[in-house]
């Protein structure tokens, strides 16, 4: 077998696959954050907690109601999205006219409360969630072993990202969303119900986080801190990609996942910080982010 800079290809490809998996989660989560920030003007710090809720809801559905993975993949995002809509109607909607900071502080507080509640009832050791039987096992590709579930995570998240991108950039509904992101007053003056759109957008963005949580449940153990660990990286991803750009959020998520994977191979000591180093550089050179529009 060939080697690259003394690295066996199994190691390289294995880490790239892991990077692609992480990148899939970054992409789905940063996509939701970007959509929410665009329309609601709120930096949704609760996104990680809602992702964790998605995983927990899947676990609860299985353990309390005997509802398996495939239904959870649909039900958990709906439940988390519904919870998000309640949050938006009762709390967030009071902040739209204030500075970003208020939304950030409020959602940060909400995240702590949600995480605290789950920690109180379920502890921090983590709960197991089985890979669904249909996706157990894997393929030996010759140069590496590919677990079926990981392949599914990559495919499912790519499909969701593509679907969200298509909906936002290519459809009539997406045109409403983009227009309302730019100038909600005028869109309202055309007779469109902007507050309803805002509510549903938050619900959908949060449902994406819930979906990512279900995808993550069989890979990472279901535990109350799983979102808090991830969301910091996802925020760095969003800053690098640029807050306003849907495609930017998706692409940056995947690329940075891969970059992290490469860093684990070639410079393992730096792998935990590589994204933040890139963020610092991007902020110095192009503060609006790689895909962001200056304003």
């Amino acid at each position: 077998m060939f080697e690259l800079l003394g690295i066996p290809p199994q190691v390289l490809l294995g880490q790239l696959l892991l990077g692609l998996i992480n990148g899939s989660f970054y992409a789905v989560l940063s996509l939701g954050l970007a959509v929410i920030f665009g329309l609601l003007n709120i930096i949704n710090f609760a996104h990680g907690a809602l992702y964790m809720m998605g995983a927990f809801v899947a676990w609860m559905l299985l353990n309390y109601f005997g509802i398996g993975y495939w239904w959870a993949l649909i039900l958990a995002p709906v439940i988390v999205g519904g919870f998000g809509i309640v949050l938006e109607r009762t709390i967030l909607s009071r902040l739209y006219k204030l500075d970003h900071l208020y939304g950030l502080l409020l959602t940060f507080g909400l995240a702590l409360i949600i995480q605290g509640l789950f920690r109180n009832y379920y502890g921090i050791s983590g709960l197991p969630y089985q890979i669904p039987a249909e996706l157990a096992g894997g393929y030996n590709l010759g140069f590496m072993y590919l677990p079926n579930y990981r392949a599914w995570v990559v495919i499912a998240s790519a499909a969701v990202c593509f679907g969200a991108w298509f909906l936002i950039e290519k459809t009539r509904l997406g045109a409403y969303l983009r227009a309302a992101t730019e100038n909600p007053t005028l869109v309202g003056a055309f007779g469109i119900n902007v507050p309803l759109m805002v509510m549903l957008t938050y619900g959908a963005g949060v449902a994406l986080a819930g979906f990512a949580g279900v995808l993550a449940a069989p890979i990472y153990s279901v535990n109350p801190n799983m979102g808090a660990d991830l969301i910091i990286v996802v925020f760095a991803v969003v800053v690098i990609g640029g807050m306003g750009s849907i495609l930017g959020a998706i692409l940056t998520g995947y690329v940075l996942g891969l970059v992290e994977g490469l860093a684990r191979v070639f410079f393992p000591e730096g792998s935990a910080v590589v994204i933040f180093v890139i963020m610092a550089i991007v902020l110095l050179v192009k503060p609006e982010g790689l895909f962001g529009r200056a304003n």
């Binding site: 045109a175 227009a179 730019e182 005028l186 055309f190 469109i192 529009r293």
Partner: peptide, 17 residues
Amino acid sequence: RGIFASLSVEENLMLPP
């Protein structure tokens, strides 16, 4: 004028319901 930068000309035209 309120032309939307993130919409094409046709999308701008079709926007008001």
